Deep mutational scan, measured.
Amino acid sequence: MQRVNMIMAESPGLITICLLGYLLSAECTVFLDHENANKILNRPKRYNSGKLEEFVQGNLERECMEEKCSFEEAREVFENTERTTEFWKQYVDGDQCESNPCLNGGSCKDDINSYECWCPFGFEGKNCELDVTCNIKNGRCEQFCKNSADNKVVCSCTEGYRLAENQKSCEPAVPFPCGRVSVSQTSKLTRAETVFPDVDYVNSTEAETILDNITQSTQSFNDFTRVVGGEDAKPGQFPWQVVLNGKVDAFCGGSIVNEKWIVTAAHCVETGVKITVVAGEHNIEETEHTEQKRNVIRIIPHHNYNAAINKYNHDIALLELDEPLVLNSYVTPICIADKEYTNIFLKFGSGYVSGWGRVFHKGRSALVLQYLRVPLVDRATCLRSTKFTIYNNMFCAGFHEGGRDSCQGDSGGPHVTEVEGTSFLTGIISWGEECAMKGKYGIYTKVSRYVNWIKEKTKLT
């Protein structure tokens, strides 16, 4: 034993070699072989497995989906700052455009905790909710729209109204504003409101030439003092309507412009014939205590009207009353817009006519005020429907199939267009061939041609 100890002390290297040989010859039971080890760690190889990531292109799944990435790591994937920024906006807080917040056709661009709407022409605001041009839906104005110097929408209202708090709607500024039905039992019968379409306001006024200088022999019209197929109006439903009495009662109609003036057809009036105007009328054979009678003290036909040349060209006249009318729910003026808007309103496509005229061709006159909704007829169809001249200051309205029309005794009465609950004068009943005849239409004086003249002559002093 002493000898062994001496050998170990003198030859430590020998001992180490012996131990190493023993270990190498022993069977290893701690580690699995290569094949079995792979069965336990069965993990798919990654895209760049075996390579240094710093030297390969980034992978979106590896960089940002398996674990949260930084902007720089995302930049490695896209290799483009702009594309990385677009991805980053949604990656950080989701897609803010998912709810489609942009209105009126706006395009949404996502941002971090926010979004941006790219608005089409005519709109602005956070969600493109603000109209900035009158060309689109009248700028959301209830009545009139004008573009300011910086191309912003400025709404306005006709006389007797003021802008509401929203700067879009119009509200009454006087007790009985024009064009409004205020009798409670008839307010439910107000005709369907007309909503502004998209309009090209630059070209809204037709490029028409008034044929002022045409000389033409007097034409022989049949029954051209021209509501057939209409309905009984309720008291106060058309408070701007008046009836004219002269040699015979209810020979023509008219509309209240203001307390002192009536507008009617020029062919209705004769110099030297006494005319009485009755406002607030409903049943011409009954006294309903809503009527107001006034005498006409002055007749002003349009300066281009000449019955000797043509009885229905420039067929418009103004009547001055001896005493002002007292405005109330049964006696209310009709609204008159400017030339541009009167023309736009007419193009809405349908209007209402009213009167006490004959209820059928050569038949009896109506006792109760009649009204009828009539569609506008395109000019080409209008011209083809008659052998008589249709001037540019006239328009056609009615039904091709016949059966409904204005008729004798309705002449001078109103053709009105309702705009968001307020009625505007767009025409004056003038003439036609018979009444409600198939293929024939009622012919009306186009008020847009005469609004400046009306307003100039009827100013209240």
Rank of each mutant, 00 (worst) to 15 (best):
V368K: 15
G403T: 13
L372H: 15
C141Y: 00
S169F: 06
F424K: 00
V77S: 15
G246P: 04
T16C: 09
N452Q: 13
L19H: 03
G409S: 13
E270P: 13
E420Y: 14
C268W: 01
C141I: 00
E281Y: 07
F144D: 00
N203R: 10
P235K: 10
R226N: 13
N304F: 10
V56D: 04
T158H: 09
I300C: 04
F196D: 12
T186N: 11
G280Y: 02
V248K: 13
L376I: 12
C97D: 01
E82T: 15
K137C: 03
T133N: 12
P101G: 02
L211A: 13
V199L: 07
Y91H: 15
A233G: 08
R140D: 05
L103E: 12
A308E: 13
I297G: 04
A207P: 11
S182C: 03
N42I: 12
D198H: 12
I7D: 05
L60G: 15
K45I: 15
Q219N: 08
D223A: 12
G229H: 07
T215M: 05
V277W: 01
N42S: 11
E27L: 03
V269I: 13
L318E: 00
E418V: 09
E79Q: 14
F395C: 02
G105E: 04
N258P: 00
T461Y: 10
Q167C: 05
Q185S: 12
Y91R: 11
G122C: 00
G351Y: 02
V202R: 12
R364Y: 08
C335R: 02
D410V: 14
W118A: 15
L321I: 07
P120Q: 09
G355M: 05
A307T: 07
S329K: 14
S182V: 09
R379S: 11
C382E: 01
N104T: 01
M65E: 05
E82A: 15
Y115C: 02
R373I: 05
C119M: 00
E401H: 14
Q408E: 15
G106C: 02
T417W: 01
V195E: 13
S329V: 05
C102H: 00
A26Y: 06
F224Y: 11
I15Y: 06
A37R: 02
E159L: 07
C18I: 14
T264N: 00
Y115V: 02
E86I: 15
Q90Y: 11
E340I: 13
V273M: 14
T417A: 05
Y201I: 13
H289M: 10
I17T: 04
I17Q: 03
V30H: 15
R3K: 09
E54G: 15
L24A: 09
N222H: 05
V374Y: 02
Y391W: 11
L321T: 02
A233E: 05
H415K: 01
G50A: 14
E72Q: 15
F224T: 12
T186A: 11
R62Y: 03
K293A: 06
V77Y: 06
Y352L: 12
Y391F: 14
K68N: 15
D249M: 10
L32Q: 15
E285G: 07
W261A: 00
D93I: 05
R140Y: 07
D378Y: 03
G439W: 04
V4P: 08
C407I: 07
T225Y: 13
Y450E: 01
R191Q: 08
D315R: 01
E82P: 13
D131N: 12
G427E: 01
Q370H: 14
L130Q: 14
A37M: 04
C435K: 04
I316D: 01
V153W: 04
V56A: 12
K459C: 10
Y161A: 01
Q370S: 12
T215C: 04
G125N: 01
H282M: 08
K459W: 05
R3S: 10
V92P: 10
E418T: 07
C252H: 01
Q57W: 04
R384F: 05
S182N: 09
C178F: 00
V183T: 09
T218C: 05
P177T: 03
G58V: 15
E61M: 15
S217C: 06
E291D: 04
S448E: 07
E76I: 15
N135W: 04
G105P: 00
C108G: 00
K440F: 04
N222G: 13
E79T: 15
D111V: 06
N328S: 12
A266E: 02
K293M: 05
L321F: 01
R3D: 06
N48C: 04
V153M: 06
Q2V: 13
C102I: 00
G179I: 00
V181E: 07
D249K: 14
H400Y: 13
S411D: 15
F221G: 07
C157A: 00
V447Y: 00
V368C: 05
F224D: 11
C69M: 03
C128D: 01
W261G: 00
S350M: 08
V153E: 03
G355V: 09
R75S: 09
L425T: 01
S156Y: 14
C128N: 01
G125A: 02
C252M: 01
N343G: 10
W431R: 10
V368Y: 06
S182I: 08
G179R: 00
S99D: 06
R226S: 07
T426K: 00
D33Q: 07
C134T: 02
N36Q: 10
G421M: 05
E281Q: 11
Q185M: 08
K362R: 12
H303P: 10
W431V: 14
I7M: 13
K440Y: 07
T342V: 03
C170V: 01
D33E: 08
T386N: 11
L319G: 02
I40W: 06
